[in-house]
């Protein structure tokens, strides 16, 4: 009996001391740094090591007189929130723990604890954004809602970042060498077809430019104009004139799936005199965002 009374007394004392130590009122969250700017977030591209995603701290202060559980949700109904592109992933974690992807309207549990005392518990969170080529370029503003216990105890952090334009051409620095050409036999003498890979998060165009006239190694003679041509898939030849870019192909944003582009070069021999010799020149290939919203390849179209 005595032991039972002692036990009961101990329970009462514990409860009383807990009541004295606990913070009064409902649990609360204070977001100490509610504005987060992650700057430019470059999409990861295969073949180039993606930089470590930049993260930023979001320190929280939680006060609760009872055990608590903290969740985070991407807000969908705030003016500060845009619908996120599929290629963007926003991740959060308590510092040093495993990253967890935030979901739209789906609370993700982040941390839990017991009563905090009047000073509250500091919860150091970190947020980061990972972007892929499936994301169009542009500025983004998203809101993260933190909650404990119920929806009435919430805090918010507004996260901003920008996805830059990414256009990438996988180039090949192996020299183009033409077949031996008989200047007395008119016709097209094709180079080996070369295939390139393009990835881009915007519509793009790939262009080839002959940097300067090709020069004969022995005589320093210049290659006659219009000797080099780019042929499209239907066999139509466009002359490659020094310093005049020729569009090889164009297309819409590739996302993460590379698009193949073929370069078909040829030497064109006609009635014009083609002095004998071995010529050498430089050919630039470049990619840039297209100035047209039209989609699809316009092979070998002079622009």
């Amino acid at each position: 009996m005595t032991s039972r009374r002692t036990m009961l007394l101990a329970v009462v004392i514990c409860a009383a001391s807990a009541a004295v130590a606990a913070a009064p009122g409902p649990p609360s969250i204070v977001v100490l740094s509610p504005l987060v700017d992650l700057g430019s977030v470059r999409p990861s591209v295969d073949g180039i090591a993606a930089p470590e995603p930049r993260s930023a701290p979001i320190p929280l202060l939680i006060q609760s007189s009872s055990p608590w559980s903290l969740t985070a949700t991407l807000e969908s109904n705030s003016a500060a929130t845009q619908l996120l592109p599929d290629g963007d992933r926003i991740e959060i974690r308590p510092a040093g723990r495993v990253w967890t992807r935030l979901q739209l309207s789906l609370p993700i549990p982040l941390a839990s604890g017991g009563e905090t005392g009047p000073a509250g518990d500091s919860i150091p969170l970190e947020v980061r954004v990972i972007s892929t080529l499936d994301s169009p370029p542009g500025s983004r503003h998203v809101r993260i809602r933190f909650a404990i216990a119920s929806d009435s105890n919430t805090g918010f952090a507004d996260v901003s970042y920008a996805v830059p334009v990414v256009t990438q051409l996988n180039d090949d620095l192996t020299p183009f060498v033409s077949p031996r050409v008989n200047p007395a036999r008119p016709g097209l003498y094709p180079y080996e077809i070369r295939t390139y890979q393009v990835v881009s998060n915007v519509p793009w165009v790939v262009e080839a430019t002959l940097s300067a006239p090709a020069i004969a190694q022995a005589s320093a003679a210049t290659l006659p104009q219009n000797t080099l041509v780019i042929t499209n898939e239907t066999g139509v030849a466009q002359p490659l004139v020094p310093n005049e870019p020729v569009a090889i192909a164009s297309g819409g944003a590739s996302g993460q799936q590379p698009r193949s582009v073929q370069l078909r070069l040829a030497v064109k021999v006609d009635d014009a005199v083609l002095p004998a010799g071995d010529y050498s020149g430089q050919l630039s290939l470049s990619i840039r965002p297209a100035a047209s919203s039209g989609s699809g390849t316009e092979a070998a179209v002079r622009r």
């Binding site: 020299p175 002959l210 083609l274």
Partner: peptide, 18 residues
Amino acid sequence: ARDLRGQGVAIRLIPRVA
């Protein structure tokens, strides 16, 4: 250092990325 020796004409283009 590749030799293009042979009959007729050959044109070598060095790729360049600008």
